[in-house]
Design a protein around this nucleic acid. Structure first.
Length: 474
DNA sequence: GCATGATCATGC
DNA sequence: GCATGATCATGC
């Protein structure tokens, strides 16, 4: 079909949006009951159906936006419901393949990426593995343009990806490299290797994608019609877009901590007029929050949108971490349904903000802690592969009902992957007591129970030692 | 001494 | 009541 024949070519953005909104609360089968739906199912299938049966044009993959005159790009994206009943993005929002040969010749303002994706029309539907495409339910529809600071961060993200390709390192691209816009793998594995212009090493095919947490932010906007209702506060004022696009988000955040290196946590709290309860286990996390946004009763907006987690690590005089670092407890039933690319562990590991306090005494003493520094840790691809191994083994153990290996008194041993078997991530308990449990998808063979003590993924102590030594050299 | 199991203190 | 970020305790 020629563009001139497109029914919505020439229509205004408002008209297109109005038509899209007809889908809210509906399935294609409701709107077009007499239609015989044909075409591929599977990934991308729903988007094709919406183009074909609702907007009446044949799906294409041209580099222009789907509605050229209105400058709007149509996207469909799946939702899942959180345990608390809120809509969450099921996965990242893919915004087109990265052309390694093309991106190195572009500047952002005129890039293929920006041309196609500066204005999105997003149709969110409920993921349902069992339903056919015409029976998927649409829940949220809206158009999306990026706030100024977000676009500045995305510009820098794009430039980060470009510079890696320019350096002949396209094969080392990783989601953690960037803040909101990631270079997401596309195609499962070695089969989708591509040439890159400045190296003979083949690189994974990758696509630009808004990270899952950023998509959650868009969802919250669509739901509330305004800013997210949860209390968040930004690190950067709206007039800092220039510095965000040039100096970069990571550098600007880290520089906020540089002036406190060598200072005690209490001194840092005082310098920022923060009243912190140092009895609380969340004291360090609160301190970090206070330094960045000046208040304790809100979340760091940019971190939430980027899915960056803050962790504080205390190290001894020699540089050894006191403890491993935990992520939130996983739900067994959810974990076994995940795909690696969209897993919680992948998102948790991809990008961390780590604040390190070191003991000034040879004998460890919490009162002698001094800030050693703060840094972003973007877990490299090879380490993510190790994390994936732990993730896979954990799912296997759960699916086989083989969590418990032995019980002796009140202590039980499990078959979960330990720190000995993996250089990066292991599994440990993570609840209030052993009675603090989540349900299991299959009962445990040893205990017969349909639930088990909460567990989570932990970053190994030894791994953290290496990470800190690398990021904060003496 | 390290790896693993168990639990704490808070705030929403 | 429970998620979160963190720390304590024990056995090999």
């Amino acid at each position: 079909m020629l563009p001139a024949e497109l029914p919505y070519n020439g229509k205004s953005r408002e008209d297109i949006l109005r038509h899209a909104r007809l889908l809210i609360g509906k399935r294609l089968a409701d709107l077009y009951p007499k239609t015989v739906f044909t075409g591929a199912s599977g990934k991308g299938g729903f988007g094709n159906h919406v183009e074909k049966y609702h907007f009446k044009y044949e799906p294409n993959s041209v580099s222009e936006p789907d509605f050229p005159d209105a400058g709007v790009e149509l996207k469909t994206s799946p939702l899942r419901k959180s345990r608390r009943g809120h809509w969450k993005s099921k996965e990242r929002l893919v915004l087109g393949l990265i052309n390694y040969d093309g991106i190195v010749k572009e500047i952002f303002e005129n890039s293929a990426f920006l041309k196609k994706n500066h204005h999105l029309l997003i149709i969110f539907y409920e993921h349902d593995g069992g339903a056919s495409l015409p029976n998927l339910m649409v829940h949220l529809v809206g158009d999306w343009r990026y706030p100024d600071n977000d676009l500045a961060i995305i510009e820098k993200d794009w430039a980060t990806i470009q510079s890696k390709v320019l350096a002949g390192r396209a094969h080392l691209l990783s989601e953690g490299d960037t803040v909101y816009l990631g270079a997401s793998t596309k195609g499962s594995n070695a089969k989708s290797l591509r040439n890159q212009p400045f190296s003979d090493v083949k690189a994974m095919q990758r696509a630009f994608a808004l990270k899952s947490r950023y998509v959650n932010f868009i969802i919250e906007n669509f739901e509330s019609g305004e800013r997210p209702s949860g209390q968040t506060s930004p690190i950067f004022a709206t007039d800092e877009k220039k510095r965000l696009a040039t100096v970069g988000f990571d550098n600007l955040v880290v520089s906020r901590f540089d002036r406190y290196v060598g200072k005690s946590p209490r001194a840092i709290a005082n310098a920022n007029s923060l009243t912190i309860n140092f009895q609380a286990k969340s004291a360090y996390a609160n301190l970090t929050k206070g330094v960045l946004i000046g208040q304790l009763d809100a979340e760091i907006e940019e971190f939430r949108k980027a899915g960056i987690t803050v962790r504080t690590i205390r190290i001894d005089y020699e540089g050894t971490p006191r403890e491993a670092v935990s992520f939130p407890a996983f739900e067994y039933i959810e974990l076994v349904k995940e795909e690696w690319e969209d897993s919680n562990l992948m998102a948790d590991c991809a990008k961390l903000f780590i604040v390190v306090y070191q003991c000034a005494n040879r004998i460890f003493d919490d009162k002698k802690l001094r800030l050693k520094g703060a840094f972003f840790w973007n877990t490299p691809v090879e380490d993510l592969e190790h994390a994936r191994e732990t993730w896979g083994k954990t799912r296997e153990v759960i699916n086989n009902g083989a969590i418990v290996s032995s019980v002796s008194g009140s202590r039980r041993r499990t078959n979960f992957p330990g720190a000995k078997g993996n250089p990066v991530v292991h599994v440990r308990p993570h609840g209030t007591t052993t009675a603090d449990v989540y349900p299991l998808p299959v009962p445990d063979l040893v205990t017969g129970a349909f639930e088990y003590t909460k567990h989570s993924f932990w970053l190994n102590q030894k791994y953290l030692r290496r990470v800190i030594a690398e990021s904060l050299p003496d």
